[in-house]
Amino acid sequence: MAKRIDVNGLNAYYGGHKAIEDITLHVEPRSVTAFIGPSGCGKSTFLRTLNRMHEVTPGGRVEGEVLLDNENLYGPGVDPVQVRRTVGMVFQRPNPFPTMSIYDNVLAGVRLNGIRYSRSQLDDLVEKNLRGANLWKEVKDRLHKPGAGLSGGQQQRLCLARATAVEPDVLLMDEPCSALDPISTLAIEDLIDQMKSRYTIVIVTHNMQQAARVSERTAFFNLAGVGQPGRLIEVDATDKIFSNPSEKATEDYISGRFG
């Protein structure tokens, strides 16, 4: 079930360094929201606060609240492990488990839940999620070969299948196409389009055409200077951001005047 995300007054730190400051943002369920902005503006850091991956980095710390259908992810007694089971993530570089087969990679998260499935249920789950990632036809004859033997684009789609197999409420994508060629990029973008009917998707991208192609809403992040925390400058409908943004900084960025 897709869930809505409400972020209120969020700060994130690396040790003593404040990486992002006072971010307030709302994301509708079953929508695609893109985060754009120059390098170092904290968009990836912010994305990682949405599934509590930020605190995995030594010194990583968060203030403020992130509500998933009104439940605070940072509330007392909330287990970050449980959060990550409901908020899936796809990374910049494809990272299938090198020691596992394609089949086992898809099921890696499912097996963590401790539910016993029958062999045929597992087979169905693998097929369903590989079809969902448009990878089934390419790998159905070598499901038990290592995932690392696939091309970069196939590996990234395998990672998508792995993330969707646990049926998360939200899918976070951290520049999922930046290591891929244009054709693989197109394949991932098509997938995002298909998946938004089932998940709430948030995608960080450096590619503004990509943001314009896949997202309904776009959030622009910027930082005042080196060493300053990143801030959310504006968030609006993607058409509006790319045609008539409210802020001067946004217009400068999307027209290529800086960043």
Partner: peptide, 20 residues
Amino acid sequence: ANEEAALALGATRWEVVRMA
């Protein structure tokens, strides 16, 4: 990258060790 992949799937520390 593999440890983070396991963490992002909701693996506990021991499960990260076992998977990655």
